[in-house]
């Protein structure tokens, strides 16, 4: 018996490709940005980020880009996150909790449907990179 068959090789390739997609900039179905200014962190943004990491891991999803950015300027409504489904306008969510972000992840990020009741509005501030 050979140690590795052609099928095994293909499996290793597919798996590692998924795990390293972010290095080569593949296609993403959505981008989620958690605002991580001091205000955001104080209000619990880390919990939001951890919840999102857990969602990605448990569902083995590799085509959602998870990033963070600084304070969005609306410190009173933190924690905040911006969801941008490919091809659609970004949506800002405010006053987040772990429960809310899980719902948003399921309905908006995966399902493509904006969760109106948690949303602040459509659009996003510009970043310089």
């Amino acid at each position: 018996m050979p140690k590795l068959t052609l099928d095994d090789l293909a499996k290793i390739r597919e798996k590692t490709k998924r795990l390293t997609t972010i290095r080569v900039g593949g296609e993403y179905r959505a981008k989620v940005c958690v605002h991580m200014g001091t205000c955001g962190i104080a209000a619990g943004a880390r919990t939001i980020m951890n919840a999102l990491m857990k969602e990605l891991e448990e569902r083995e999803i590799h085509d959602v880009l998870l990033t963070n950015s600084g304070c969005a300027g609306l410190c009173s409504r933190e924690p905040m996150a911006t969801v941008e489904v490919a091809g659609q306008a970004p949506v800002k969510y405010v006053d987040l909790t772990e429960k809310k972000i899980k719902e948003i992840f399921e309905k908006h990020v995966l399902g493509g449907k904006i969760v109106q009741e948690y949303a602040l509005g459509i659009g996003s501030e510009k970043t310089d990179y």
């Binding site: 140690k3 795990l19 972010i22 290095r23 891991e57 083995e60 880009l65 998870l66 990033t67």
Partner: peptide, 16 residues
Amino acid sequence: MAEMAKEKAYRIHLMV
């Protein structure tokens, strides 16, 4: 061949 380990994804890769 070796069993595939559970996939661990990271949101940032630091390429040193």
